[in-house]
Amino acid sequence: MHNGTGAGGRALRLIEPLTRPGSLRSRRSRVRQVSRAAIAHAAVVTAAAVCCAALAVFLLLPLVALLSTAPPHAVIAALRDGETLTALGLSLRASALALTLTIVIGTPAAYFIATRRFPGRRAVLTAVELPIVLPPAVAGLALLSAFGPEGLAGGALSAVGIRLPFTFGAVVVASMFVASPLYIRNAIASFEQVDRRLIDAARNLGASELRAFLRVAAPIAMPGLTASAAIATARALGEFGATLMFAGSLRGSTQTAAIAIYERFASDTTAAFALSIALLALAAGLLAAAKLHSASAGLASISRR
């Protein structure tokens, strides 16, 4: 029931004044002394500024609008609510566990991938990044078809008495599946930036591979590692689709903050907005931490030279 041509006509009218050659030519004749290059430059700068402003409005307006939906005291009241706290606590616990596992398993793997050249390395790098670009619903179905009761590994898991769906473990697995690639990808990049000669020097001075990693590579890459850990945590905290499909939603055992927001949206909109603001603040904090660390990473690499 929507009239498509009307919108198209509007869009055309918007573009017209910028591209009509007549107006440009008449302006040129009026200001002869200004060179063509200067006009072209001004046009490019103006266009770029307009683009930046439009982008800023588009990206920031929803976030500012979100902040305006609930006054601070409502946010605090919502956070005092037992059920909201339970969901937030569950998200934090699941993310912390997912992050710990990711760091313990992912850091050595990232170091290995970053420092070795082996056949199929590019394929491995691509595979690591795949879950990042996967739609959450696809990730959820993928997890079910792998670790669900009838999944590829489901039989093996149930043989050892593990049944993942509807458990806290499933929340951790879903968070880790979507968030760990962010950490690992950036960890590989951080280790790749470590000057190979420093590691070689340590090895020549008699340090073992492990010692070279712990005393040379890891400290140099540390700012990058911390930043990527912060980003991965933020992603894990926000996980929604895959968790809902794989772990379901039960208060206190699988209902994360993101799922609680979705559920409240229909029943208690104020609480949903308040919890959203809390998650926004948390994500902003993690992002700021990541940025501070990458800034110090930049300083470290400059001071090395």
Binding site: P165, F166, L244, M245, A247, G248, S249, L250, R251, T254, Q255, I259, Y262, E263, A266
Partner: peptide, 11 residues
């Protein structure tokens, strides 16, 4: 025995 409270009938 309830393992999950789903947000819609499809899920």
């Amino acid at each position: 025995n309830v393992r999950s409270n789903e947000p819609d009938v499809k899920s």
